[in-house]
Computed example of a mutant assay.
Amino acid sequence: MEQAVWLDAAEQHVWRGFLRMNTRIYDELERDLRERSGVSLIEYGILAHLSEAPERRMRMRALADSVIVSKSRLSHQVARLERGGHVRREHCDDDRRGLWAVLTDDGADLLRRSAPGHAQRVRSLMFDRLSTEQIDQLAAIVAALDPDRAGAGTEASRPEHRPPSPDHR
């Protein structure tokens, strides 16, 4: 059996603070989106990812990976969005078992209405509380902890260094 290397007091403090902060921000964003738009944070993520995809469509597996949920959870959330007319599923011509999730015009409208308030809430919960230097440090930390996203969130990708998105999220 492998010998555990325990966290020291400072590491434990940072770890627990990170977990509390992450939970509080997630819960607040979830509550705010449900009150403003009637969608969950995961459903908002689905709409956002589909809006950025070519032809506003993604394979379900790729979408699950993008919004970081299981295939079964994604299927449930997409079904809810489908019932609301915001997303539709289409069979893949090249893979009989595969499905596409496609953002409808109603879904794009919902996202357009939801995005400004969501962006404002994200900013107030996180970015307004940090200096430019702290944001750059956080970007470096995120890149170091998530190798799949290395390079994302660096200084060159901050809004003042790129053209604004029409669906600013």
Score class of each variant (00 low, 15 high):
Met1Cys: 04
Glu2His: 12
Gln3Leu: 10
Ala4Tyr: 07
Val5Asn: 03
Val5His: 02
Val5Thr: 10
Trp6Gln: 14
Leu7Trp: 13
Leu7Asp: 14
Leu7Ala: 14
Asp8Val: 00
Asp8Ile: 00
Ala10Pro: 07
Glu11Phe: 00
Glu11His: 07
His13Leu: 15
Val14Asp: 03
Val14Lys: 07
Trp15Leu: 15
Trp15Arg: 13
Trp15Thr: 12
Arg16Cys: 03
Phe18Leu: 15
Phe18Ser: 14
Arg20Leu: 11
Met21Asp: 12
Met21Gly: 11
Met21Ser: 13
Asn22Ser: 15
Thr23Asp: 12
Arg24Thr: 09
Asp27Gly: 06
Asp27Thr: 09
Asp27Phe: 00
Glu30Trp: 02
Glu30Lys: 04
Arg31Leu: 08
Arg31Phe: 05
Arg34Gln: 12
Arg36Glu: 09
Arg36Leu: 04
Ser37Arg: 03
Ser37Gln: 01
Gly38Ala: 07
Val39Pro: 01
Val39Trp: 00
Leu41Ile: 13
Leu41Trp: 09
Leu41Ala: 10
Glu43Gln: 15
Glu43Trp: 07
Gly45Trp: 07
Ile46Asn: 02
Ala48Met: 08
Leu50Gln: 02
Pro54Ile: 02
Glu55His: 14
Glu55Val: 06
Glu55Pro: 01
Met58Thr: 04
Arg59Ser: 05
Arg59Gly: 11
Met60Ile: 08
Arg61Val: 13
Arg61Asn: 08
Arg61Phe: 11
Leu63Trp: 03
Ala64Gln: 01
Asp65Leu: 14
Ser66Glu: 10
Ser66Cys: 09
Ser66Asp: 06
Ile68Asp: 11
Val69Asp: 04
Arg73His: 13
Leu74Asp: 01
Leu74Phe: 01
His76Asn: 12
Ala79Gly: 11
Leu81Arg: 03
Gly84Glu: 15
Arg88Phe: 05
Arg89Phe: 03
Glu90Met: 00
His91Val: 11
Asp93Leu: 15
Arg96Pro: 11
Arg96His: 09
Arg97Phe: 11
Trp100Asp: 03
Val102Pro: 05
Val102Asp: 06
Asp106Glu: 13
Gly107Pro: 00
Leu110Pro: 06
Leu110Asp: 05
Leu111Asn: 05
Arg113Ala: 14
Ala115Asp: 06
Ala115Gln: 03
His118Cys: 05
Ala119Pro: 01
Ala119Met: 13
Gln120Phe: 06
Arg121Ser: 08
Arg123Cys: 00
Ser124Trp: 01
Ser124Asn: 11
Met126Cys: 14
Phe127Gln: 03
Phe127Trp: 15
Asp128Cys: 05
Asp128Phe: 06
Arg129Gly: 02
Arg129His: 12
Arg129Ala: 08
Arg129Tyr: 04
Ser131Asn: 08
Glu133Asp: 14
Gln134Ala: 09
Ile135Phe: 02
Ile135Cys: 05
Ile135Thr: 08
Gln137Lys: 13
Leu138Met: 10
Leu138Ile: 07
Ala140Lys: 13
Ala140Ile: 07
Ala143Asn: 10
Ala144Lys: 12
Leu145Asp: 02
Leu145Lys: 06
Leu145Trp: 00
Asp146Thr: 10
Asp148Phe: 09
Arg149Pro: 03
Ala150Leu: 09
Ala150Phe: 09
Ala150Arg: 14
Gly151Phe: 02
Ala152Val: 12
Gly153Gln: 02
Gly153His: 03
Glu155Arg: 15
Arg158Thr: 06
Arg158Trp: 01
Pro159Thr: 04
Glu160Lys: 10
His161Cys: 09
His161Arg: 12
Ser165Lys: 14
Pro166Ala: 14
Pro166Trp: 08
His168Asn: 01
Arg169Tyr: 06
Arg169Asn: 01
